[in-house]
Design a protein around this nucleic acid. Structure first.
Lengths: 154, 154
DNA sequence: TTTTGTGCAAACAATTTGCATGAGA
DNA sequence: TCTCATGCAAATTGTTTGCACAAAA
Protein backbone atom coordinates (compact mmCIF):
# COMPACT_ATOMS: atom_id res chain seq x y z
CA UNK A 1 0.00 0.00 0.00
CA UNK A 2 2.04 2.94 1.22
CA UNK A 3 5.16 1.21 0.10
CA UNK A 4 6.04 3.44 -2.80
CA UNK A 5 5.22 6.28 -0.46
CA UNK A 6 8.51 6.08 1.37
CA UNK A 7 10.48 6.19 -1.84
CA UNK A 8 8.42 9.18 -2.87
CA UNK A 9 9.03 10.86 0.42
CA UNK A 10 12.74 10.41 -0.01
CA UNK A 11 12.54 11.83 -3.51
CA UNK A 12 10.59 14.83 -2.28
CA UNK A 13 13.08 15.40 0.48
CA UNK A 14 15.91 15.41 -2.03
CA UNK A 15 14.06 17.73 -4.41
CA UNK A 16 13.23 20.20 -1.68
CA UNK A 17 16.88 20.44 -0.90
CA UNK A 18 17.83 20.57 -4.57
CA UNK A 19 19.83 17.41 -4.16
CA UNK A 20 20.17 15.04 -7.10
CA UNK A 21 17.90 11.99 -7.08
CA UNK A 22 20.39 9.38 -8.15
CA UNK A 23 20.00 5.71 -8.98
CA UNK A 24 22.23 4.77 -6.08
CA UNK A 25 20.18 6.75 -3.58
CA UNK A 26 16.98 5.22 -4.81
CA UNK A 27 18.44 1.73 -4.81
CA UNK A 28 19.71 2.07 -1.24
CA UNK A 29 16.48 3.62 -0.01
CA UNK A 30 14.54 0.89 -1.74
CA UNK A 31 16.44 -1.78 0.11
CA UNK A 32 16.53 -0.25 3.53
CA UNK A 33 13.01 1.13 3.59
CA UNK A 34 11.43 -2.13 2.49
CA UNK A 35 13.56 -4.38 4.67
CA UNK A 36 11.78 -5.70 7.73
CA UNK A 37 14.89 -5.92 9.87
CA UNK A 38 17.93 -4.03 11.02
CA UNK A 39 20.59 -3.78 8.35
CA UNK A 40 24.23 -2.83 8.63
CA UNK A 41 25.89 -0.79 5.92
CA UNK A 42 27.53 -4.00 4.77
CA UNK A 43 24.18 -5.76 4.62
CA UNK A 44 22.86 -3.04 2.36
CA UNK A 45 25.90 -3.21 0.10
CA UNK A 46 25.67 -7.00 -0.05
CA UNK A 47 22.00 -6.86 -0.94
CA UNK A 48 22.77 -4.30 -3.60
CA UNK A 49 25.48 -6.54 -5.00
CA UNK A 50 23.13 -9.50 -4.94
CA UNK A 51 20.78 -7.54 -7.17
CA UNK A 52 23.57 -6.77 -9.58
CA UNK A 53 23.95 -3.15 -8.47
CA UNK A 54 27.42 -2.44 -7.19
CA UNK A 55 27.56 0.67 -5.05
CA UNK A 56 30.57 1.87 -3.08
CA UNK A 57 30.38 1.47 0.67
CA UNK A 58 31.05 5.19 1.06
CA UNK A 59 27.93 5.95 -0.93
CA UNK A 60 25.96 3.52 1.19
CA UNK A 61 27.06 5.33 4.33
CA UNK A 62 26.35 8.73 2.83
CA UNK A 63 22.87 7.70 1.75
CA UNK A 64 22.08 6.04 5.06
CA UNK A 65 22.95 9.32 6.75
CA UNK A 66 20.57 11.10 4.40
CA UNK A 67 17.78 8.68 5.19
CA UNK A 68 18.35 9.22 8.89
CA UNK A 69 18.40 12.97 8.52
CA UNK A 70 15.03 13.00 6.78
CA UNK A 71 13.59 10.68 9.43
CA UNK A 72 12.90 7.84 7.05
CA UNK A 73 15.37 5.65 8.88
CA UNK A 74 16.94 5.32 12.29
CA UNK A 75 20.41 4.29 13.35
CA UNK A 76 20.71 1.66 16.07
CA UNK A 77 23.60 0.34 18.00
CA UNK A 78 23.11 -3.13 19.38
CA UNK A 79 26.59 -3.17 20.81
CA UNK A 80 28.03 -5.27 18.04
CA UNK A 81 30.74 -2.75 17.23
CA UNK A 82 28.92 -1.34 14.23
CA UNK A 83 25.63 0.37 13.55
CA UNK A 84 22.51 -1.00 12.04
CA UNK A 85 19.81 0.95 10.25
CA UNK A 86 16.11 0.43 10.37
CA UNK A 87 13.25 1.96 8.41
CA UNK A 88 11.29 4.33 10.63
CA UNK A 89 7.81 3.02 10.91
CA UNK A 90 6.65 5.73 13.27
CA UNK A 91 6.48 3.31 16.09
CA UNK A 92 6.83 5.19 19.32
CA UNK A 93 7.87 3.33 22.43
CA UNK A 94 9.28 0.44 20.54
CA UNK A 95 12.09 -1.51 22.19
CA UNK A 96 14.36 -4.41 21.38
CA UNK A 97 15.11 -7.85 22.74
CA UNK A 98 18.29 -9.23 21.25
CA UNK A 99 19.38 -12.81 21.54
CA UNK A 100 23.06 -13.06 22.44
CA UNK A 101 23.24 -16.52 20.89
CA UNK A 102 21.73 -16.16 17.45
CA UNK A 103 21.61 -12.38 17.18
CA UNK A 104 17.90 -12.26 16.45
CA UNK A 105 16.19 -8.99 17.31
CA UNK A 106 12.58 -8.91 18.44
CA UNK A 107 10.62 -5.79 19.14
CA UNK A 108 8.15 -4.94 21.82
CA UNK A 109 6.09 -1.95 22.82
CA UNK A 110 5.23 -0.48 26.15
CA UNK A 111 3.67 2.82 27.09
CA UNK A 112 4.64 2.67 30.73
CA UNK A 113 8.32 3.10 30.03
CA UNK A 114 8.11 6.58 28.47
CA UNK A 115 5.83 7.56 31.29
CA UNK A 116 8.36 6.45 33.89
CA UNK A 117 11.07 8.30 32.02
CA UNK A 118 9.05 11.45 31.71
CA UNK A 119 8.42 11.62 35.43
CA UNK A 120 11.93 10.71 36.47
CA UNK A 121 13.42 13.22 34.09
CA UNK A 122 11.04 15.96 35.11
CA UNK A 123 12.03 15.50 38.72
CA UNK A 124 15.61 16.29 37.72
CA UNK A 125 14.88 19.16 35.37
CA UNK A 126 16.01 16.98 32.49
CA UNK A 127 14.14 17.20 29.20
CA UNK A 128 14.16 13.80 27.51
CA UNK A 129 14.45 13.82 23.75
CA UNK A 130 14.81 10.16 22.90
CA UNK A 131 15.36 6.96 24.76
CA UNK A 132 16.45 3.51 24.01
CA UNK A 133 15.92 0.26 25.85
CA UNK A 134 17.84 -2.81 24.87
CA UNK A 135 17.33 -6.19 26.51
CA UNK A 136 19.88 -8.90 25.96
CA UNK A 137 19.19 -12.52 26.66
CA UNK A 138 18.36 -15.82 25.08
CA UNK A 139 15.48 -16.41 22.74
CA UNK A 140 13.17 -19.37 22.91
CA UNK A 141 14.85 -21.15 20.02
CA UNK A 142 18.33 -20.83 21.48
CA UNK A 143 17.43 -21.68 25.03
CA UNK A 144 18.14 -25.34 24.39
CA UNK A 145 21.69 -24.77 23.20
CA UNK A 146 24.39 -23.83 25.70
CA UNK A 147 25.34 -20.23 25.07
CA UNK A 148 28.44 -18.10 24.87
CA UNK A 149 28.35 -14.62 26.35
CA UNK A 150 28.74 -11.74 23.98
CA UNK A 151 31.75 -9.56 24.63
CA UNK A 152 30.48 -6.16 23.64
CA UNK A 153 29.08 -3.70 26.18
CA UNK A 154 25.59 -4.10 27.44
CA UNK B 1 35.55 2.03 54.25
CA UNK B 2 35.16 -0.75 51.70
CA UNK B 3 37.39 1.17 49.36
CA UNK B 4 40.48 -0.96 49.64
CA UNK B 5 38.12 -3.88 49.39
CA UNK B 6 37.74 -3.55 45.66
CA UNK B 7 41.48 -3.51 45.14
CA UNK B 8 41.71 -6.59 47.35
CA UNK B 9 39.01 -8.28 45.39
CA UNK B 10 40.87 -7.65 42.19
CA UNK B 11 44.05 -9.02 43.73
CA UNK B 12 42.25 -12.14 44.90
CA UNK B 13 40.74 -12.63 41.50
CA UNK B 14 44.17 -12.46 39.92
CA UNK B 15 45.70 -14.79 42.49
CA UNK B 16 42.95 -17.36 42.06
CA UNK B 17 43.70 -17.46 38.40
CA UNK B 18 47.45 -17.48 38.97
CA UNK B 19 47.75 -14.23 37.09
CA UNK B 20 50.50 -11.79 38.06
CA UNK B 21 49.47 -8.87 40.24
CA UNK B 22 51.35 -6.14 38.46
CA UNK B 23 51.80 -2.47 39.29
CA UNK B 24 50.00 -1.48 36.13
CA UNK B 25 46.98 -3.62 36.92
CA UNK B 26 46.75 -2.21 40.39
CA UNK B 27 47.22 1.36 39.19
CA UNK B 28 44.49 1.01 36.60
CA UNK B 29 42.12 -0.70 38.99
CA UNK B 30 42.82 1.96 41.56
CA UNK B 31 41.81 4.70 39.17
CA UNK B 32 38.75 3.11 37.67
CA UNK B 33 37.34 1.56 40.80
CA UNK B 34 37.61 4.76 42.80
CA UNK B 35 36.36 7.08 40.05
CA UNK B 36 32.79 8.25 40.50
CA UNK B 37 32.09 8.57 36.79
CA UNK B 38 32.32 6.81 33.49
CA UNK B 39 35.84 6.72 32.11
CA UNK B 40 37.10 5.95 28.64
CA UNK B 41 40.33 4.03 28.15
CA UNK B 42 41.93 7.34 27.24
CA UNK B 43 40.65 8.94 30.41
CA UNK B 44 42.26 6.20 32.43
CA UNK B 45 45.56 6.54 30.56
CA UNK B 46 45.49 10.33 30.97
CA UNK B 47 44.81 10.03 34.68
CA UNK B 48 47.63 7.54 34.96
CA UNK B 49 49.95 9.94 33.12
CA UNK B 50 48.86 12.81 35.36
CA UNK B 51 50.02 10.75 38.33
CA UNK B 52 53.36 10.15 36.71
CA UNK B 53 52.61 6.55 35.78
CA UNK B 54 52.87 5.97 32.07
CA UNK B 55 51.08 2.82 30.96
CA UNK B 56 50.53 1.71 27.39
CA UNK B 57 47.01 2.02 26.06
CA UNK B 58 47.03 -1.66 25.16
CA UNK B 59 47.61 -2.53 28.80
CA UNK B 60 44.83 -0.21 29.84
CA UNK B 61 42.45 -2.01 27.51
CA UNK B 62 43.64 -5.41 28.64
CA UNK B 63 43.21 -4.52 32.29
CA UNK B 64 39.81 -2.96 31.75
CA UNK B 65 38.72 -6.23 30.17
CA UNK B 66 39.98 -8.07 33.23
CA UNK B 67 38.04 -5.78 35.54
CA UNK B 68 34.92 -6.36 33.51
CA UNK B 69 35.40 -10.09 33.49
CA UNK B 70 35.66 -10.25 37.28
CA UNK B 71 32.55 -8.05 37.60
CA UNK B 72 34.36 -5.21 39.28
CA UNK B 73 33.61 -2.93 36.36
CA UNK B 74 31.10 -2.59 33.58
CA UNK B 75 31.50 -1.42 30.00
CA UNK B 76 29.02 1.15 28.72
CA UNK B 77 28.37 2.56 25.32
CA UNK B 78 26.79 5.98 25.32
CA UNK B 79 26.89 6.17 21.56
CA UNK B 80 29.95 8.38 21.45
CA UNK B 81 31.87 6.03 19.23
CA UNK B 82 33.93 4.58 22.03
CA UNK B 83 33.25 2.72 25.25
CA UNK B 84 33.34 3.97 28.78
CA UNK B 85 33.96 1.94 31.89
CA UNK B 86 32.36 2.28 35.27
CA UNK B 87 33.06 0.66 38.61
CA UNK B 88 30.33 -1.85 39.43
CA UNK B 89 28.63 -0.71 42.53
CA UNK B 90 26.14 -3.53 42.57
CA UNK B 91 23.37 -1.20 41.66
CA UNK B 92 20.64 -3.17 39.99
CA UNK B 93 18.12 -1.36 37.82
CA UNK B 94 20.30 1.65 37.38
CA UNK B 95 19.82 3.68 34.22
CA UNK B 96 21.32 6.72 32.55
CA UNK B 97 20.20 10.15 31.43
CA UNK B 98 22.78 11.71 29.15
CA UNK B 99 22.76 15.34 28.13
CA UNK B 100 23.38 15.73 24.42
CA UNK B 101 24.70 19.25 24.96
CA UNK B 102 27.28 18.92 27.71
CA UNK B 103 27.65 15.15 27.80
CA UNK B 104 26.87 14.88 31.51
CA UNK B 105 25.57 11.50 32.63
CA UNK B 106 23.10 11.21 35.48
CA UNK B 107 21.82 7.99 36.92
CA UNK B 108 18.43 6.95 38.09
CA UNK B 109 16.83 3.84 39.50
CA UNK B 110 13.51 2.23 38.89
CA UNK B 111 12.17 -1.17 39.84
CA UNK B 112 9.21 -1.10 37.51
CA UNK B 113 11.33 -1.34 34.41
CA UNK B 114 12.86 -4.77 35.11
CA UNK B 115 9.40 -5.96 36.05
CA UNK B 116 7.98 -4.80 32.72
CA UNK B 117 10.86 -6.45 30.93
CA UNK B 118 10.50 -9.70 32.82
CA UNK B 119 6.84 -10.02 31.88
CA UNK B 120 7.24 -8.97 28.29
CA UNK B 121 10.14 -11.33 27.79
CA UNK B 122 8.38 -14.21 29.49
CA UNK B 123 5.44 -13.82 27.16
CA UNK B 124 7.81 -14.41 24.25
CA UNK B 125 9.81 -17.23 25.76
CA UNK B 126 12.80 -14.91 25.94
CA UNK B 127 15.08 -15.12 28.96
CA UNK B 128 16.48 -11.68 29.72
CA UNK B 129 20.05 -11.56 30.96
CA UNK B 130 20.79 -7.86 31.09
CA UNK B 131 19.15 -4.71 29.94
CA UNK B 132 20.11 -1.17 29.36
CA UNK B 133 18.07 1.99 29.21
CA UNK B 134 19.58 5.17 27.93
CA UNK B 135 17.72 8.47 27.84
CA UNK B 136 19.10 11.32 25.82
CA UNK B 137 17.99 14.87 26.28
CA UNK B 138 18.97 18.18 27.77
CA UNK B 139 19.95 18.71 31.36
CA UNK B 140 18.74 21.56 33.51
CA UNK B 141 21.95 23.51 33.15
CA UNK B 142 22.00 23.29 29.37
CA UNK B 143 18.35 23.99 28.83
CA UNK B 144 19.02 27.70 28.52
CA UNK B 145 21.51 27.32 25.68
CA UNK B 146 20.31 26.40 22.19
CA UNK B 147 21.53 22.89 21.48
CA UNK B 148 23.00 20.95 18.65
CA UNK B 149 21.82 17.42 18.08
CA UNK B 150 24.30 14.66 18.59
CA UNK B 151 24.99 12.62 15.51
CA UNK B 152 25.59 9.22 17.02
CA UNK B 153 22.85 6.63 17.21
CA UNK B 154 20.17 6.86 19.81
C1' DT C 1 27.08 23.75 -17.86
C1' DT C 2 27.02 23.91 -13.24
C1' DT C 3 26.24 21.56 -9.18
C1' DT C 4 26.45 17.73 -6.52
C1' DG C 5 27.30 12.60 -6.33
C1' DT C 6 30.09 8.56 -6.87
C1' DG C 7 33.91 5.40 -6.50
C1' DC C 8 38.19 4.50 -5.08
C1' DA C 9 41.79 4.76 -2.12
C1' DA C 10 43.74 6.95 1.65
C1' DA C 11 42.70 8.64 6.22
C1' DC C 12 40.82 7.97 10.80
C1' DA C 13 39.72 6.50 15.49
C1' DA C 14 39.00 2.98 18.73
C1' DT C 15 40.53 -1.29 19.79
C1' DT C 16 43.27 -5.61 19.23
C1' DT C 17 47.32 -8.33 18.39
C1' DG C 18 52.28 -10.04 17.53
C1' DC C 19 56.46 -10.10 19.38
C1' DA C 20 60.78 -9.00 21.92
C1' DT C 21 61.70 -7.75 26.46
C1' DG C 22 60.77 -7.34 31.49
C1' DA C 23 58.51 -8.21 35.80
C1' DG C 24 56.03 -11.40 39.13
C1' DA C 25 55.65 -16.06 41.33
C1' DT D 1 63.63 -19.83 36.04
C1' DC D 2 59.39 -20.05 33.97
C1' DT D 3 55.30 -17.96 33.01
C1' DC D 4 52.72 -14.35 31.87
C1' DA D 5 52.45 -9.05 31.27
C1' DT D 6 54.04 -5.03 29.10
C1' DG D 7 55.10 -1.77 25.48
C1' DC D 8 55.48 -0.64 21.15
C1' DA D 9 54.20 -0.78 16.62
C1' DA D 10 51.61 -2.93 13.20
C1' DA D 11 47.08 -4.78 12.13
C1' DT D 12 41.99 -4.61 12.16
C1' DT D 13 37.43 -2.76 11.80
C1' DG D 14 33.82 0.43 11.04
C1' DT D 15 33.38 4.72 9.18
C1' DT D 16 34.76 9.21 6.93
C1' DT D 17 37.09 12.06 3.56
C1' DG D 18 39.75 13.92 -0.61
C1' DC D 19 39.70 13.99 -5.19
C1' DA D 20 39.19 12.91 -10.23
C1' DC D 21 35.43 11.61 -13.00
C1' DA D 22 30.38 11.14 -13.98
C1' DA D 23 25.60 11.94 -13.60
C1' DA D 24 21.54 14.94 -12.50
C1' DA D 25 19.31 19.50 -12.81
Amino acid sequence: MADSDVLDRFTSFLRERRLPVTQQRLAIADILLRAPGHLSADDVAAELARKGQTVGLATVYRTLDLLVSCDLAEARDFGEGFRRFEASRNLPNHYHLTCTVCGAVTEFFDDRIPEIIRRTAAARGFVPAQHRLLVRGTCRACRKTPSVLARRPL
